[in-house]
Simulated assay, not measured.
Amino acid sequence: MIAGVVAALGGWAWVVLVLALLSAELIIPGTVLLWLGMAALAVGGLSLLAAPGWQAELIVFAVLALAAAVGWWLYGRPDNAASSDRPMLNRRAQRHVGKALTLDEPIARGEGRVRIDDSVWRVRGPDLPAGARVTVIAADGATLVVEKAAD
């Protein structure tokens, strides 16, 4: 039944595949289906212009899909992307590492609070009184890990 529908559509079957792949790309992140969709679009254009046999269409699609996947692997992956000019944008706690701060509330039983700009942050470190100077040495989630600042 599916073979009959594909045969009846001819080259338009590739256009339907393109639409299906690009629709799936909207739901499934990663851009891999985008490149497969572009390969299907190229084969669809070829089949509408030249009408090769289905075997040739599948071979061309396989070659183009493989080339697109290799191209994405070499040049399009996120770890190959250019570094940001603001690398700490979505890592709010990590950007405070190294800062010297004044405790807003004392650290008691290992936990306290510090005010940074208009935000109050939980801190973890040695017990210290309010007003003591601390240095942020690490970030653990949304908690800043501190130590007594050197005077």
Score class of each variant (00 low, 15 high):
Met1Ser: 12
Ile2Pro: 13
Gly4Lys: 06
Gly4Asp: 14
Val5Ser: 02
Ala7Val: 13
Gly10Glu: 05
Trp12Met: 02
Val16Arg: 09
Leu21Cys: 06
Leu21His: 01
Ser23Pro: 12
Ala24Ser: 11
Ala24Ile: 08
Glu25Lys: 00
Val32Arg: 04
Val32Thr: 10
Met38Tyr: 02
Ala39Asn: 09
Ala42Trp: 00
Gly45Met: 03
Leu46Pro: 07
Leu46Phe: 08
Ser47Cys: 11
Ser47Pro: 11
Leu48Ala: 08
Leu49Thr: 15
Gly53Arg: 02
Trp54Gly: 05
Gln55Asp: 14
Glu57Ile: 02
Glu57Gln: 14
Leu58Phe: 11
Leu58Val: 10
Val60Trp: 02
Val60Tyr: 04
Ala65Glu: 00
Ala68Leu: 01
Ala69Asp: 04
Leu74Gln: 15
Ser83Cys: 06
Met88Cys: 12
Met88Glu: 14
Arg92Met: 07
Gln94Tyr: 11
Val97Phe: 01
Gly98Cys: 11
Leu101Lys: 11
Leu103Val: 09
Asp104Cys: 08
Asp104Gly: 04
Pro106Lys: 01
Glu111His: 15
Val114Arg: 05
Val114Met: 03
Arg115Cys: 04
Ile116Asp: 06
Ser119Tyr: 08
Val123Cys: 04
Gly125Ala: 08
Asp127Cys: 11
Gly131Phe: 03
Arg133Phe: 11
Val136Phe: 13
Ile137Ala: 07
Gly141Pro: 11
Lys148Cys: 04
Lys148Ile: 07
Ala150Asp: 13
Asp151His: 07
